[in-house]
Computed example of a mutant assay.
Amino acid sequence: MAELESGTESPTDEPERIARPRRRLTFLGIVVAVLVLLFGMPWWALVVSGPQWPVPVFVAGTVVILGAALALPVSMILGHGPRTLDWAARVGDTTLGVAWVLFTWTVLGLVPRVVLAVAGVENPLRARIVAGFVVGVALVLVAWGVVEAMRVPRVRVTEVVLPRLGRGLDGTRVVLLADTHFGPIDRARWSARTAAAVDALEPDVVCHAGDIADGTVARRHAQAAPLGDIRARLARVYVTGNHEYFGEAQGWLDHMAELGWTPLHNRHVTVERGGDGLVLAGVDDATAGASGLPGHGASVTGALAGADPRLPVLLLAHQPQQVRAAAAAGVDLQVSGHTHGGQIWPFHYLVRVDQPTVQGLSRHGERTQLYTTRGAGFWGPPLRIFAPSEISLLILRAG
């Protein structure tokens, strides 16, 4: 059979060439549907259906909602696409957060609408009362959510009993950070205050469970710098999250090493105190294998290769769903982030579809426990609503 000429598509390329435009159209259709739902429902419920606003109010409400609906996709493309313009990301992320809160409470506003209807309150008064309630609640929650997102995380203390932990390590203080998400909003001062809060806990071990930043080391260098000031008696360890693989995962692994941390890139270290040992192991994020980066891909087996099987294991893995592999390997405790505790209520219900847990301590199998932190920072919208950030202090207890 004659070879295909150089530059000629093979027959196997034809289905892919046909499927590509279909996928783009499907994606575009989904985006349009989401925008129509996200902005269309508040517009219909608050502006059009029932309130009978004066023309200036109707026009102003329509312009604001329509303008936001058009600005969102443009700013998100400019901010999170190839150009990665931070100002555009800030606009898009904030618009998305406000729209989500307004949409959520517009849906919940159906309850007082029904109650008022049963009570005999007629339109336009009924619709105007509900509109005022929805907008008022949304404004309060957005303002509160910004404060919660920008504050130094609260310390959440949890005692974790590990039956295989030696008495020499009883009371070991493990501080868990995750999801710092240094990004378009410059949070260098927040980073310094958070690092100081970690230091004040006098940790034995500090873990960063990934999603350190959105962007390259060069762009987020100043925000990440305070991590180098954190001290720990036994070890400072770090693993990649899924967001590192949107930027430069290997760059962040190398930079954390430069800051004095130990990157656990499918490997482990052993710490000792009082004659007893604890294996600190770490794996790449669950998405690492699909990133195409040579040598990247989560491997619990690789992380534990050569570890003393008699010692308890604390495993860093960014996503809670990675606990399945951890339980199969007999890990004693996995620490994870990724979920943000839902970040903006009621988004945690969607997170729960993808992850086995959203926050806190849980058990998986006979031996393995999982602690999922709500994370220190935020991604996208600078809001945290009913999902406060945290610095997790885990006090390990011998069984």
Rank of each mutant, 00 (worst) to 15 (best):
P73S: 02
A117N: 04
E122D: 13
V48Q: 07
P73I: 01
L70K: 10
A127N: 10
T84K: 02
V121E: 13
L108Q: 13
T104P: 02
L108R: 06
G79H: 01
V114Y: 09
W43M: 04
D86G: 00
R113L: 10
F58S: 08
R126F: 12
V121R: 01
V121W: 05
L38E: 11
A89I: 00
V74P: 08
G50R: 01
R113K: 13
V121L: 08
D86V: 03
P73D: 01
N123Q: 07
R83G: 13
P42S: 11
A89E: 01
V114S: 05
G81T: 05
V107M: 12
W87H: 10
M41A: 13
L110T: 11
P124I: 03
G92L: 09
V118K: 10
L116N: 03
A127K: 04
L46H: 04
G92H: 06
P54M: 02
R128W: 11
L125V: 13
L46M: 12
L46N: 11
T84P: 00
G97R: 00
G97Q: 07
P82I: 15
V57D: 08
T95I: 05
A119P: 05
L110Q: 07
L70Y: 06
G120A: 15
L72E: 07
R90Y: 00
T94N: 11
D86N: 06
T104L: 04
W87S: 12
P82V: 15
M76N: 07
V130W: 12
L96K: 14
A88E: 01
H80M: 11
P54Y: 07
T84Y: 00
V48C: 08
G120W: 08
V91N: 00
S49M: 06
V114A: 14
D93P: 05
A88W: 00
G67E: 14
V55R: 09
R83W: 09
A119I: 11
A69K: 06
R90A: 02
A60R: 08
M41H: 11
F58M: 15
W43G: 02
F39P: 06
L38G: 13
P112K: 05
F103N: 02
P112N: 12
L46E: 12
L37Y: 02
V101R: 04
A117Q: 12
P112V: 03
T84F: 00
V63P: 09
L85P: 05
R126G: 13
F39E: 09
P112E: 15
L72M: 11
R126N: 15
G67C: 08
V115G: 11
L37Q: 00
D86E: 07
L96H: 08
I65C: 03
L125S: 13
M41P: 09
L110N: 09
R128K: 14
V101D: 12
L85Y: 02
T106P: 01
T106Q: 01
T95C: 05
V118L: 14
G40L: 03
V36M: 12
T104G: 04
G120Q: 09
W87Y: 13
F58L: 15
G79S: 05
L46P: 01
M41W: 13
V114P: 02
